[in-house]
Design a protein around this nucleic acid. Structure first.
Length: 156
DNA sequence: CTTCTGACA
DNA sequence: TGTCAGTA
């Protein structure tokens, strides 16, 4: 990846367990009570990290935060807990698809004619041409197909 | 001060 | 779900 800076770090941070919250913190962040969080966990709706003993405080990762936050949104819209969970599962399936597509479609971000462009990978089966996308002055997406040189000037 | 489990006006 | 108890 050309992005070895902030973006790369953020991806790693979200993917790993760098962000961890105690139950009280998660409650404050989401507006969901600690009582609810424990109850939801007992129902298998969310999960916390492994604990040494039963008396230790629960610790949640970023994924759990997102799940709780989304369920909370649906609850506020009037859904029952059961309904909110169902909607949340669908919601997260869609975002998983988007995430997979984005991750696989966006190969790189490079400079094309001295302007930033997204490298969308090979345009042809023979893998001799590359498809790039850019945003022009009018905020319209412009595509370009260029011969694949094997490398490109990446933006760091 | 915070969290844990269990119980209930 | 809130809350109180009695701990760790």
């Amino acid at each position: 990846m050309a992005f070895s800076g902030v973006h790369h770090f953020r991806m790693k941070a979200l993917a790993s367990e760098l962000f961890q919250f105690r139950i009280g913190e998660l409650a404050t962040m989401t507006g969901v009570s600690t009582r609810q969080l424990r109850y939801w966990e007992s129902k298998g709706i969310i999960s916390s990290l492994e604990r040494e003993g039963e008396q230790d405080a629960r610790v949640y990762n970023y994924t759990a935060y997102v799940t709780v936050a989304v369920i909370k949104e649906f609850l506020d819209e009037g859904y029952t807990l059961k309904g909110a969970v169902k909607k949340t599962n669908e919601h997260q399936r869609n975002w998983q698809v988007l995430h997979d597509v984005m991750q696989n479609a966006v190969q790189d971000v490079v400079l094309l004619d001295e302007t930033p462009a997204v490298d969308l990978g090979f345009f042809d089966e023979e893998e001799t041409q590359r498809l790039y996308a850019r945003i022009d002055e009018n905020n319209k997406v412009k595509y370009s197909v260029r011969p694949w040189a094997g490398y490109a000037e990446s933006i760091e």
